[in-house]
Simulated assay, not measured.
Amino acid sequence: MDRWQAMRIFAKVAEMESFADTARHMHMSAPAVTRAVAALEDLIGARLFVRTTRSVKMTEAGTRYFEDCRRILADIAEAEAAAGGSYATPTGTLAITASALFGQMYVLPIVTEFLNTFPTMHARTLFIDRPVNIVEEGVDVAVRIGHLRDSGFSAIKVGTVRHVICGSPSYFESHGVPTTPADLKNHRIAASTSAWASPEWRFANDQRVMIDPILQCNTNEAVITAARAGWGLTRVLHYQIGPALIAGELQIVLSDYEEPPMPIHILHPQGRHAPAKVRAFVDMAAAHLRENRLLN
């Protein structure tokens, strides 16, 4: 029995929870898949699956063995890739994730430049405002805003973002400029329900203000549009209004009362064994994000 091949078959059955689907996926006969798993069980001396007419589930021993198999198979694939040169030259498809607006505004231009620099590469982006499991969703690189939990991934800090209060010059001319957080109660507020579900806005030194937004929108883009039009004030992450700040369409107020900024990190799970495509993109992204004055 080819143990490496048997481990590959077992891992695929575990992922697909089906002997028949595994057989089709690996272009094998169903009996061949069954024999390979049975031989592996005989070799190990433990049942790896509980099989019924409707389902295939791993046993406790199978679950432990599956984790070891994935690690061993990944090490083998890494060794083969290194020998074949893919760790020297970017190849294949790169998957990148970031929050929706940050990804569109700041990460996508880096991705397109990366593809121009390495024309044989492909890229897949997942710009979405929800936590993404990097390993389970097959992501190579993530750009994350906020303080990180200990994940064991490689993390490179590339900038910071601030929570800011902003409005248009025309609004301030008509309604005045708030000088303390308490003054917000005297102003029209547009709030994004997607980013600020709580009516409590927090500031430095644990100051808190309960706001009563007259306008609530489900996207940050909408409240920014309202603020640019001179309707009222809103609170967003400062990178989201970068173009409007540069154009003079919005101004930040109460900056002396802001909470400490949140860090921006680039994450990837491979560490020092990362393939060339990951290393090249991380280097390019880190350089561009660190040079962006709106993120520092």
Rank of each mutant, 00 (worst) to 15 (best):
281 F>V: 14
6 A>T: 01
82 A>D: 15
204 A>C: 04
231 W>P: 05
64 R>T: 11
135 V>W: 00
19 F>L: 06
158 V>R: 14
234 T>M: 02
141 V>N: 05
264 I>C: 09
56 V>Y: 04
110 I>V: 14
110 I>T: 10
85 G>L: 05
296 N>G: 08
89 T>A: 04
184 L>M: 14
233 L>T: 01
295 L>S: 08
71 R>S: 07
7 M>D: 10
86 S>T: 15
294 L>N: 11
230 G>L: 11
276 A>Q: 06
74 A>E: 02
270 Q>L: 02
12 K>Y: 00
179 T>E: 13
25 H>A: 12
59 T>S: 07
59 T>F: 07
90 P>V: 14
91 T>W: 04
184 L>E: 10
141 V>A: 06
123 A>M: 04
294 L>R: 06
3 R>Q: 13
210 M>I: 10
155 A>D: 07
256 D>C: 01
277 K>R: 13
233 L>W: 06
171 Y>C: 13
128 I>M: 09
22 T>C: 08
140 D>Q: 01
163 H>Q: 11
252 I>N: 07
295 L>D: 11
205 N>T: 03
165 I>S: 10
51 R>H: 07
18 S>C: 09
196 W>Q: 14
252 I>F: 07
88 A>S: 12
158 V>F: 05
7 M>I: 02
75 D>I: 03
209 V>C: 00
114 F>L: 09
128 I>R: 10
130 R>E: 02
166 C>V: 13
206 D>L: 07
133 N>R: 11
45 G>F: 04
273 H>G: 02
261 P>C: 08
27 H>P: 00
182 A>R: 09
272 R>I: 15
46 A>D: 06
221 E>K: 12
285 A>K: 03
293 R>F: 12
177 V>A: 05
99 S>E: 13
276 A>T: 01
249 E>P: 00
255 S>Q: 09
214 I>C: 06
111 V>R: 06
33 V>E: 10
292 N>A: 02
64 R>Y: 10
290 R>V: 04
49 F>I: 12
11 A>Y: 05
127 F>R: 10
266 I>K: 12
198 S>W: 02
132 V>E: 00
191 A>V: 13
178 P>K: 02
282 V>K: 08
44 I>D: 12
151 S>D: 15
251 Q>M: 07
177 V>H: 08
260 P>T: 06
267 L>Y: 07
67 E>Y: 05
150 D>G: 00
181 P>M: 11
231 W>K: 03
242 G>H: 15
235 R>Y: 08
220 N>T: 04
163 H>C: 03
19 F>S: 05
238 H>N: 12
109 P>N: 11
199 P>N: 06
32 A>S: 15
178 P>I: 11
136 E>R: 06
147 H>L: 11
9 I>P: 01
255 S>E: 14
227 A>F: 01
165 I>K: 12
1 M>P: 14
231 W>Y: 01
253 V>T: 08
119 P>M: 05
269 P>K: 04
274 A>M: 03
78 E>H: 02
213 P>E: 01
253 V>F: 13
17 E>L: 04
97 T>H: 01
176 G>N: 10
267 L>K: 13
122 H>Y: 02
136 E>F: 02
34 T>H: 10
137 E>S: 15
226 A>S: 12
249 E>M: 02
184 L>A: 14
129 D>P: 11
36 A>T: 00
2 D>E: 12
62 G>D: 03
121 M>F: 01
184 L>Q: 08
42 D>S: 11
125 T>C: 10
270 Q>Y: 13
101 L>A: 15
26 M>L: 15
